[in-house]
């Protein structure tokens, strides 16, 4: 039986994910595993940016807004409710609703692409400043003190669904994190394979043509924006869980810039690339941070410049289009142009 290569790639990816999920706990100590858990949260964040930018052709410079909203929504909800089941849903729902409102005005207001970048950036800065200035006892939502720039410490971790008396230990948290990452990957793949996803990509390629066929690009972009926000929110929820802590830095420009770099390095127009970019760069930053040889930010800058100059298409497309065909592992094939940028006609 012949399997469609795209399906084969998908199945290999899920299998690899499961292998890592169950394999890494066998080879890593708990400290290593906990560190990997935060990488997984960042990988999911990168997946959000990669989906929005690489497939929707929408460049958000402030995806951290949704990451942070998810994290804060979870923290506030779980402190008030105790049981983490509903807070996880809230952590996804709050960014989605926020994205629906923001996206409605951006897309239905026919804001051009460049301004979408500016607006999303500004929104993340506003949220940063807003949350940053909530110091003092007066600022609380229910039992949750917002804490201003000090953030919210002691956020209860995830517990077994519906049972707040059995919180997950760090080892179990790993399974929860990787499990959700694999699920999100599968959901995004399914979306992209559906008619909706195919139209989203078509709109990235040529919005005018899509419109002249009868698709309303505003609607498709809004929905794509909301999906990406939900994924970022879940990533923010995992991130908050990992440290039991959240502070306004989740809304910072560094967060938004970092995730763009993850996507660029890993490969725009793929789902695997952003995840690899996130884990790879986070790993490098961790090493650089513990070595004290070079400043981590300087190292990150060097990595970005090197990639833009030498591997502008990113790691995954490089391997897929150059290395694998060269090694005769897969047939050489032409690939769609991955960005939403205007292509020469």
């Amino acid at each position: 039986m012949k399997i469609d290569p795209r399906w084969a790639g998908f199945l290999v990816m899920v299998a690899l994910g499961l292998l890592l999920m169950f394999g890494l706990p066998q080879v890593l100590d708990l400290f290593g595993l906990v560190q990997m858990t935060v990488f997984v949260a960042m990988a999911m964040f990168a997946l959000s940016q990669g989906f929005l930018w690489g497939y929707g052709g929408i460049m958000s410079f402030g995806q951290a807004a949704f990451f942070g909203l998810g994290g804060y929504a979870y923290a506030i909800a779980v402190i008030n409710l105790g049981d983490s089941t509903l807070p996880v849903v809230i952590a996804v729902a709050v960014p989605v609703v926020f994205a629906a409102l923001l996206g409605y005005f951006m897309f239905y207001g026919r804001i051009s692409d460049a301004y979408i970048g500016v607006i999303t950036l500004t929104v993340s800065v506003i949220l940063f400043e807003l949350v940053n200035s909530t110091s003092g006892d007066a600022y609380h939502i229910g039992a949750a003190q917002l804490g201003g720039f000090n953030g919210i410490p002691g956020v209860p971790p995830l517990n077994m669904p519906g049972d707040s008396s059995s919180p997950l230990d760090p080892g179990q948290m790993w399974y929860a994190a990787v499990g959700s990452l694999i699920m999100v990957y599968i959901v995004l793949r399914a979306i992209l394979a559906s008619r909706f996803g195919r139209v989203v990509v078509a709109i990235r390629e040529n919005e005018t043509r899509a419109m002249l066929i009868g698709y309303d690009p505003r609607f498709y972009k809004l929905l794509t924006f909301m999906i990406a926000a939900g994924v970022a929110g879940l990533a923010g929820c995992l991130f908050t869980n990992w440290g039991g802590f959240i502070s306004p830095t989740v809304f910072s420009l560094t967060m938004s810039a970092q995730v763009i770099i993850f996507v660029l390095v890993g490969g725009l127009g793929t789902l695997l690339g952003p995840m690899i970019g996130a884990v790879g760069i986070e790993y490098l930053i961790t090493i650089a941070g513990s070595q004290h040889l070079v400043d981590a930010n300087l190292g990150l800058g060097i990595v970005l410049v090197a990639f833009v100059l030498l591997v502008p298409q990113g790691v995954v497309p490089l391997i897929r289009d150059k290395v694998l065909p060269f090694a005769k592992l897969v047939p050489r094939q032409s690939k769609p142009i991955p960005t939403g940028a205007e292509v020469p006609r």
């Binding site: 195919r198 990509v201 390629e205 419109m211 002249l212 292509v343």
Partner: peptide, 27 residues
């Protein structure tokens, strides 16, 4: 809006080809 007119049953081939350049013919 263009998409509303298209939905009523109007199709157009524009002067400068308006196609999805990055996608296959079939797509």
């Amino acid at each position: 809006n263009p998409h509303e007119i298209a939905r009523l049953g109007v199709g157009i081939k524009t002067q400068v080809p308006n196609v999805f350049n990055g996608l296959s013919v079939r797509e």
